[in-house]
Design a protein around this nucleic acid. Structure first.
Lengths: 209, 209
DNA sequence: TTGAAAAAAGACACTAGTGTCGTTATAATG
DNA sequence: CATTATAACGACACTAGTGTCTTTTTTCAA
């Protein structure tokens, strides 16, 4: 239903395809998802789909790009918001574990698929460097928070921002990996997070709430 | 070179195939490896290969089984050896980081491939439960060491074996995952391990060497 | 209203893999 | 040395996916 259409319409179509793709990627994972899956979910023909994206990888990388943008946006807001400025410890916790309602970490099928994408592509130079970019970004984000907390006197001056940031990423990646493979119940995620939080408080020199 | 052969010869052939398979799996990862790769590396024909294994998954699972056996064997020796009985902290460290020569964790292409195998198969019920088995085994192993250390008075009575064991697995999995995706240099693995060791000593109530 | 531009469709050719099966070659045995 | 069971081989048929290309459909504009 549409030739020689407006730019807006094309944008919409593209967005629809991406939304459909996101769904099937979450459902089947990266490797098992095929262009056919996306076509069916998005109600678009083969030819139509290839008009917008040149390959499965193209589709997925577009989603990744969106994901990283929204992530940075969220981060930016977090650090700017005035309510959070009062406690970097609180900022750290919400960044780690989701929002105030004590939600779990941002864990879900999408994240598992991203993991899969980078692991199966670990021998591909391009994917590798993209993975590094994401990793570095995450580390830097935590470093920023910790540094600000040190400046404000909330965290101990002895805290090694870089190593603590890396520990956070390693631990969350690990819990998340175990969760992906083994499932929530068996990993006792919530308890592990609580346990790790104690350690973090210790390492940063914060008295726990 | 062989019909109506001895049982020993067949065992040998099978072992050769497995060795070749191990090599190509390490090189290409699980998904990208094909039966053709294994055939070529093992110098066996298609028909020959299928005489010993019914599928790629069959080959890989056999390797996994071997891996887990040698792992348990190593563990058993560690716990029985008299030299290590004197210090469970030492046992814990060598278990974690490899042997006395301060080698790194048992990290390599094989482990990345195992990771890949479980992640891409996360929606398959059989692989999932196999993954759980491995996870549970690892946790239990650490629990055992910690419990013995508590009995011997080397570790604090307050140490929560289960949660510490899980932390260890989560952290090592995380460092390992990051290493797989991003590479050694960028993850600063050695420093992270050292850092984590401090925490472990703290959690277990051990004075560091 | 009609013609042109291009969006959408889907048939097609191609590729890369799998697992099977009839044939060939050879090691053990009498 | 001849026989025979069977290990090993490799051609084959099949499947599941990809990306392309021609055809059809539809919207916009003159």
């Amino acid at each position: 239903m549409s030739p020689k259409v407006s730019e807006a319409h094309k944008e919409q179509r593209r967005a629809d395809i991406l939304q459909a793709a996101e769904k099937v990627f979450a459902e089947h994972g990266y490797e098992k998802t095929t262009m056919k899956h996306i076509m069916d979910e998005a109600n678009v023909s083969r030819g139509g789909l290839y008009l917008y994206f040149s390959s499965k990888e193209d589709v997925f990388e577009t989603l990744l790009e969106e994901d990283i943008l929204s992530y940075q946006e969220k981060m930016r807001k977090h650090l700017q918001s005035e309510t959070n400025n009062t406690s970097y410890w609180h900022t750290l916790l919400t960044t780690l574990y989701g929002n105030e309602k004590h939600e779990n970490m941002a864990i879900g099928p999408a994240s598992s698929t991203i993991l899969e994408f980078f692991i199966t592509g670990r021998n591909d130079e391009e994917r590798r460097s993209y993975g590094k970019k994401r990793y570095t970004l995450a580390i830097q984000m935590y470093i920023d928070i910790i540094e600000k907390g040190k400046e404000s006197g909330e965290f101990s001056q002895e805290a090694q921002s870089d190593m603590i940031a890396r520990s956070i990423v390693a631990f969350t990646d690990g819990v998340f990996l175990d969760y992906t493979i083994v499932g929530n119940e068996d990993v006792k995620m919530n308890e592990q997070i609580k346990y790790f939080t104690h350690y973090l408080a210790f390492a940063l020199g914060v008295k726990q709430t």
